[in-house]
């Protein structure tokens, strides 16, 4: 689906690379989390996937097409992107207008457009807000509209660039459960940039960046096993990971690194308390 071969990137007139020699393959239908501290290059990596940034050296391929200045427009039809700041990606004056924007760019006929707008607003549960202006929506609602705008274009990949970092916890939960649902139902590939390890634990695979290089690439469970080492790359282990470490230090044996508190508690029940 997406391949990166020896990809490096640096901004013009700047000496140091933001990303250096990245090699990655992302399969169709995968859910990949990209984590790292601020400045580790994770947002730049996301922007390399749809040509918002073009690699300084190396090759990015999407569906076997090499991403170039010419092919980027065609590739963007397959890759939808939701950004961090809900305020800065709302193009339309109302919810429906915003969802329409991408479809208008694709020159979709108006009848099809109306259908797709209704359908995608339905998917993100924002139908009731169809004619609302952005100033009357909460951050979480705006991000759901941004997702609807992306969905209406029927992409194969959705890239979320810290899409929940400016939301309150309820807004975050809504957006995350929505993504889970879309991933399961529609089978879209999800690439999620975040610095929250609880969020990253939802992914099938996590790539950790540090100073522009890949520090870790594997299952979320294996990442959490690194425990205190996570601090080295600016990440904070989740509460459950800390409790788990404390328990193993007190010589409790638990079969696997828990991703979630429910998993840990259930495991303890199964191992020690079930009769």
């Amino acid at each position: 689906m997406i391949e990166l071969e020896q990809v490096s990137f640096r901004y013009q007139n700047e000496a140091s690379h933001v990303l250096e020699n990245i090699n990655l393959t992302i399969e169709q239908g995968e859910w990949v989390g990209i984590v790292g501290r601020n400045g580790s290059g994770k947002s730049t990596l996301a922007k390399l996937l749809n040509g918002l940034c073009l690699a300084t050296s190396g090759v990015v391929r999407v569906n076997h097409t090499v991403l170039t200045d010419e092919s980027k427009f065609q590739i963007r039809n397959h890759i939808g992107m939701v950004f961090q700041n809900p305020e800065n990606q709302f193009v339309g004056t109302t919810v429906a207008d915003d969802v329409a924007f991408g479809l208008e760019n694709l020159a979709v006929p108006r009848e099809t457009m109306i259908k797709r707008i209704d359908q995608s607003l339905e998917q993100v549960d924002m139908t009731a807000y169809k004619n609302h202006e952005p100033s009357r929506l909460s951050g979480g609602q705006k991000q759901r509209v941004a997702l609807a705008s992306v969905l209406a274009m029927q992409p194969e990949v959705i890239v979320l660039d810290e899409a929940t970092s400016m939301l309150d916890p309820i807004g975050t939960d809504q957006v995350l459960s929505l993504i889970q649902e879309l991933h399961e139902k529609l089978g879209v590939t999800v690439i999620m940039v975040t610095h929250d390890l609880n969020e990253a634990a939802l992914a099938d695979r996590v790539i950790t960046l540090d100073a522009g290089t890949v520090w870790f690439d594997g299952k979320p469970r294996e990442l959490l096993e690194k425990g205190d080492q996570l601090h080295e790359v600016g990440l904070e282990p989740p509460f459950v990971t800390k409790v788990y470490q404390q328990l193993t230090r007190q010589s409790l044996n638990i079969t696997q690194e828990p991703l979630h508190y429910e998993e840990l508690v259930d495991e303890l029940w199964r191992l020690y308390l079930k009769t």
């Binding site: 916890p169 609880n198 989740p238 409790v243 508190y261 429910e262 508690v265 259930d266």
Partner: peptide, 19 residues
């Protein structure tokens, strides 16, 4: 009222209920 309790509190809730 739409305020999510922190992970630690949810943890406590779940373990008191289940265990």
């Amino acid at each position: 009222i739409g305020l999510a309790p922190p992970e630690s509190i949810k943890f406590v809730d779940y373990m008191t209920q289940t265990l």
